[in-house]
Amino acid sequence: MTASTATPATLAPTHPHEAQRRAARRRKRLRNLGFFALLAGPNIALLLIFVYRPLLLSFYYSMLQWNMGSSVARFIGFENYVRWFTDPDTPQVMGTTAIFAVTTVGGSLVLGLGLALLLNKKLFGRGIARTVAFAPYVLSGIAVGMLWLYIFDPRYGLLSTLLEAVGLSSPQWYTTSPWALIMIIIVYLWKHVGYVALIYLAGLQGVPQDLHDAAALDGAGKTRTFASIVLPLLGPVTFFLLITTILSSLQSFDLIKAMTDGGPLGSTTTLMYQIYVEGFQTGRAGFASAAATILFVILLVITAIQLKFMERKVHYA
């Protein structure tokens, strides 16, 4: 090891090409920066304008007492948040949101996996069945809601006719508290199961055949093979679906709007729907923005928890 004896003078650029090299490097960095801006700039700009700006605006509006449509407002700090947390309707809204999220996410994962297993078999007309299963997902939620309203109609609906055929009377789907939410959940599942099934189907087709063969050689039955090999290998797919379906469920709006308008007695009013009601019906834009910010935080926390704790248990093949 040698001690440095360099003086400031010896550190100064002495080689005539050193400055040129530095200038060239600087020009190259600028060129690269320009190239980066050219490629990533439009996407970043879109994100800033259509995602982050509304997000920040919403947070800002949540601190205002502001009539939707008015050009004036009053700054009230966090009062809208205090009101939301102390509102007597909040427990019901959050309870409905939780029930809806748990049943729709759990239901769509279980039913979607079952459907995917079925569609993965070599059956006649499998291609058509796959298309039919996925089709509801691409339909408009409002159209689906209107269609199912006719089916659920307690007086004239198809479901009522079927129930009557087996000696049962139709529940009052629109006007009684538990049935309205059950109705929405059924329709939500019908609409979204195809999407989950499609993703699971892709995952199932990615499970190597030799693992099935090895399990068979070891004497594992179908159930054991599914539980010990297929399901763990579907971990990344399940993880992905869990995140996307929770986000989708918590943001669900169209079916509720078309079928129940949040009623009866607020029994189908989720947090997402409350935002709409407060913002556009009651006109309390500040309060609605506070609720929207709370929904954002909830989604952020759920996603962060999933990423932190659940991803560890996922087996990537």
């Binding site: 605006l57 509006y61 205002l64 008015s70 050009s71 004036v72 407002a73």
Partner: peptide, 10 residues
């Protein structure tokens, strides 16, 4: 650029 805060209007 949202509503003007604290001013008159409406």
């Amino acid at each position: 650029s949202g509503p003007s805060v604290g001013g008159g209007g409406g």
